[in-house]
């Protein structure tokens, strides 16, 4: 590890309605869906907080901790010198809202679920853009992010990631015994940084 864990907070990014609906299983926005989505956006006023914690490692240290067994990790990090390990969350409130409407208005719960998914992805995109920009300044290139559970990079890596990033204290993100993240609208991921 080059350094301790840092925390970054982000302002809300613009909502991509198409993406929200796509996550909710809808191909197009009909009038009814539009009204329902507006209502969900109103419910989510102030519901999100956008937090990321991250740490920069040398690629050697990464493999010391996670091992060399994963083909996915080996390929993704080939020719990389550093990795950025990060965890992001949009907070617990969206989980409360989804639970609130799950039994009384499941249509809202599905849209809220879609909204939460879109929000966390947009947070990760914003963070990764920052990483790419900083890498570029130093003449490096940031690769596409990948997560535990992707390809053959085992989900059990979550345990190491949570240990390394101190997610609970830094951003309020916790891991259950069955390796589920709570709040659920959260992502942990790895970004390779290399010269090419």
């Amino acid at each position: 590890m080059l350094d301790g864990v840092r925390v970054k907070t982000y302002p809300a990014q613009a909502v991509d309605r198409r993406e929200v609906l796509r996550y909710a299983g809808c191909q197009t926005e009909t009038a009814e869906l539009g009204v329902a989505l507006d209502e969900c956006l109103r419910l989510c006023d102030n519901a999100f907080s956008y937090r990321v914690c991250y740490s920069v490692w040398t690629v050697e240290h990464f493999f010391e901790v996670f091992g060399k067994a994963s083909q996915t990790a080996n390929t993704r990090l080939a020719a990389c010198e550093y990795v950025v390990l990060f965890a992001g969350t949009v907070g617990l409130e969206i989980d409360r809202l989804i639970a609130k409407y799950a039994s009384v208005a499941p249509s809202k719960a599905v849209l809220l679920q879609g909204l939460g998914a879109e929000r966390i992805e947009s947070l990760c995109d914003a963070f990764c853009q920052d990483v790419a920009a900083q890498a570029a300044e130093k003449g490096y290139r940031a690769k596409t992010r990948f997560s535990a559970g992707y390809g053959d990079f085992s989900l059990t890596a979550q345990k190491e990631i949570f240990l390394a990033l101190d997610c609970a204290r830094k951003i309020g993100l916790t891991l259950t015994d069955s390796l589920l993240m709570s709040p659920t609208k959260s992502v942990t991921a790895i970004v390779g940084i290399g010269k090419q």
């Binding site: 809808c26 208005a105 499941p106 249509s107 599905v110």
Partner: peptide, 11 residues
């Protein structure tokens, strides 16, 4: 019809 619409009808 999409899932939210199915559910709106269910509600």
């Amino acid at each position: 019809a999409y899932l939210p619409q199915l559910l709106m009808s269910a509600e």
